Amino acid sequence: MKHHFFKALITSAVLATGAGTAATAAECIAPANPGGGWDFTCRQIGKIMFDIGAVDQPVQVTNMAGAGGGLAFSHVVNDQNDNADLIIAASSATTTRLAQNAYAGMTADQVRFVGAIGADPGVIVVAKDSPIQNLTDMVDMIKADPSSVAFAGGSAVGGFDHMKPLMILQKADFTDIKSIKYIGVDGGADAITQTVGGFTQAMTGDMSEVVGFVKSGEVRVIAVLTEERVPGFEDIPTAKEQGFDVVAVNWRGLYVPKGISDEKFEEWAGKLQQVADSDEWKAAMEANGLAPFTKVGGDFQSYVDGLIADINTMSKELGVIQ
């Protein structure tokens, strides 16, 4: 039933966009309405690919909102499995939903993840006067008394913000994740307010949500969840530096249909790498508050596979999924 529902929605979505472009022009599906993160990914990456000569025609963008990305995913798997001229915008939300079986039973191995070339870094934040100075302090407090540290985040229970501190605790061999207090609120600003006000001991979210509060001195970021320190915030240590090998970012990237050839997959990976290396993409990241995060080809697929496995396991432990 869900499949037929998706098919009906796909038909209307494609008709609405007037998708009848030249066969040789690449298409990028943004699984959301214009204006959001997936739309930004398609339009910026597609434009830069053409501007730098990675493709010889402008990339056509099709907006296909529905089911939190599930409509587009279903369309690609069922109807475009061997379309070598198709790329699809993706982010951390894509992998979280796949890990939690939110796409009507579809799985991540039904497509191929090409790469990510920018990200909003994950952060763990405390109030300016908090006794917690670093991740070790936080983990030690939780191990001594799991109820001593409550987190606020802008995603629902089981969402990506919730998962970030749990990933850190997992690396510290703490397994009783159901005992961790998490309050899901309406966005990062509300989560910061909870922490500044003393209602929670820490906030879990993205760098873009906390920059203003950091600059005003209301909070301290005790860890950024990236491979390397974030440009402009070099005084904030990574979780990896502190002994917790966790990379959790809201990455911006692409997947492609599974049925395309390895040669075509590598070709798309190369084009994405060209964008990542361009001055145009560096300017786009700076203008939109993204940090460098480049994983392309097989390296990125391995990262996605590991992330989905971790989130799936923790989601089951939390009771978010069966």
Rank of each mutant, 00 (worst) to 15 (best):
H3M: 11
H4W: 12
L9H: 10
T11I: 10
T11A: 15
A13C: 14
V14K: 13
G18E: 07
A22H: 11
T24D: 15
A26E: 14
I29R: 06
P31S: 07
N33Y: 12
P34W: 11
G36K: 06
W38A: 08
D39P: 06
F40W: 15
I45R: 07
I48Y: 14
M49V: 05
D51R: 07
D51F: 09
V55A: 11
P58E: 06
V59E: 14
V61M: 13
M64F: 09
M64W: 08
G68N: 15
G69S: 11
A72N: 09
S74W: 12
N78W: 11
N78V: 03
D79M: 13
Q80D: 11
N81P: 02
D82K: 14
D85R: 04
D85E: 13
I87N: 04
A89E: 09
T94A: 11
T96Y: 05
N101K: 14
A102Y: 04
A102H: 05
A102F: 04
D109V: 01
Q110C: 06
V111Q: 09
I117W: 03
I124R: 04
K128R: 13
S130Q: 08
I132P: 05
L135M: 11
T136Y: 00
T136L: 11
M138D: 08
V139E: 12
I142L: 08
A144W: 08
P146D: 05
S147W: 04
V149G: 03
F151H: 03
A152F: 03
G154S: 10
S155W: 01
V157Q: 11
F174Q: 09
T175L: 09
I180L: 14
V185P: 03
T195Q: 10
T195D: 09
V196L: 01
G197M: 08
G197Q: 11
T200C: 12
G205I: 05
D206F: 10
S208T: 05
E209K: 00
V214N: 03
R220F: 00
V221K: 01
E227Y: 07
E228M: 01
E228N: 15
R229M: 07
D235F: 00
D235P: 00
P237Y: 02
P237T: 07
T238N: 08
K240N: 12
F244I: 00
N250G: 12
R252L: 14
Y255C: 06
V256H: 07
S261T: 14
E267T: 12
W268L: 06
L272P: 06
Q274W: 03
D277T: 03
D277E: 15
D277V: 02
D279P: 00
M285H: 07
E286N: 13
N288P: 10
P292G: 10
D299K: 09
V304Q: 04
L307A: 13
L307D: 05
N312E: 15
T313Q: 15
T313A: 15
S315R: 06
L318G: 06
G319C: 09
Q322M: 03
